[in-house]
Design a protein around this nucleic acid. Structure first.
Lengths: 236, 236
DNA sequence: TAGTGGTCTAGACCACCAG
DNA sequence: TGGTGGTCTAGACCACTAT
């Protein structure tokens, strides 16, 4: 009973899948060097570029580490990466099937606090725009926004009516940005924020801070405080 | 005064950089379709595969959206992705230059709480291992771990001395996993955890929850509570 | 149906670095 | 210094989908 040609992996995705399987069953053990691209290309009957594509994907996923001359080895400590997508809050809310509403809470131009000056690397611009706003989904408070804008970089921001414009969406449309730094942490709800969320002051809230740069210029810093119990999810 | 040939972008990385620049200066405006790979290949004097590599990178970064036939267009709403690396806590602590220490706090086999049974999709295995532990850096509490292990998938876990073995490191070495779900949120410190962190009960803590799967089997669920003020950082 | 991106090939040269 | 991965090329076929 002869069998047809073995249905081996065909494209780079299938080859990557086969490689994951071999790692999974310890066929390729942690720390071990796996065969070279050339050897695998021969084994699978594909071009080396195809194997390269597959192994590059595995490396990005953290399964293997690759170095010239040293070859490709299975990661001992797979440093997993969790990727969270950070859409506009409007999109986030609407994707939940809820009606989105934005409401400015306050808007003022103030002397730049030291912390903000540092974060935005501000020089010579002693004043900064501070806006607070509430994002609602179906009437319920979804996230509280505390926004700082550097008018030295975006002078037009001074003329905007923030009761109508949502800072994030306005800035996105106006200012190109090159770099973004994000962090997440836990904070206690202030009196003001607790009022919006109808919770006790001191309630733990997930906070997301984001600093946005346009070249070397700090454009804006925002702290988003999500409703109590909110979690950010990632699937790897 | 004739000039030499213009020093255009050479490799895929430089072409990607040039494309980012064009998006940045609104040369390619949001929502607009950019030239085809073929056209760009001609413009830059490279093979189409090289342009493809560059644009694929931009798509992964969220700058452009690509669809066959429809072409490549600049994203209207760049859905930014924040990637956090999640190393072993040991590595995390040691990278800060601190001395790492692990200390089990409790270990018991208990009737599976409904929440855990759901998370691990447990069937027929009414008992589960629960371990709590403290991770220290230079003697200071760094993170509190509450770990649940499904002995139906990892029966050997019952025989392990968790005063010595750190669950995460042991599991990593023992059980191959295929899928991981991660979430972050904010929690109030319990009495027990507050004691470890020398803070008031109710203090907001960043919590990271992770469920790990091996095929269709839920292996383990862990909740890490980080010290007050801890933040996770990502640079995009 | 035609045009776009997705993928693959066979070959080539190069950068890097472990031995 | 040789073997490995990183990259590029010129060409080809295919999958998808806007028109």
């Amino acid at each position: 009973m002869s069998e047809g040609p073995p249905a081996g992996p065909k494209g780079w995705a299938e080859i990557a899948e086969e490689a994951r399987r071999r790692i999974y069953v310890r066929d390729w053990a942690p720390g071990q060097v796996i065969p070279s691209e050339e050897a695998l290309a021969v084994e699978f009957g594909v071009a080396r570029a195809t194997v390269n594509r597959a192994l590059r994907a595995l490396a990005e996923e953290g399964w293997v580490e690759r170095r010239r001359r040293a070859g490709t080895r299975v990661a001992e400590r797979p440093v997993r990466r969790a990727t969270f997508s950070i859409p506009l809050i409007r999109d986030e809310v609407e994707q939940l099937g809820r009606g989105y509403r934005y409401a400015m809470q306050s808007c003022e131009e103030v002397d730049t606090p030291g912390e903000i000056a540092t974060r935005l690397a501000m020089q010579g611009e002693p004043r900064v725009l501070r806006i607070t706003a509430l994002h609602r989904g179906d009437g319920w408070a979804y996230a509280w926004e505390e926004r700082w804008i550097n008018p030295g970089v975006v002078p037009e921001a001074r003329g905007v009516d923030w009761r109508i414009e949502s800072p994030n969406e306005w800035l996105l449309a106006q200012v190109p940005y090159t770099e973004v730094a994000v962090s997440v942490g836990a904070e206690a709800a202030s009196e003001e924020v607790a009022g919006a969320f109808l919770c006790e002051p001191g309630t733990p809230l997930l906070s997301l801070e984001r600093t946005t740069w346009s070249g070397q210029w700090g454009v804006t810093f925002v702290r988003l405080s999500y409703a109590p119990g909110h979690r950010m999810w990632s699937r790897m």
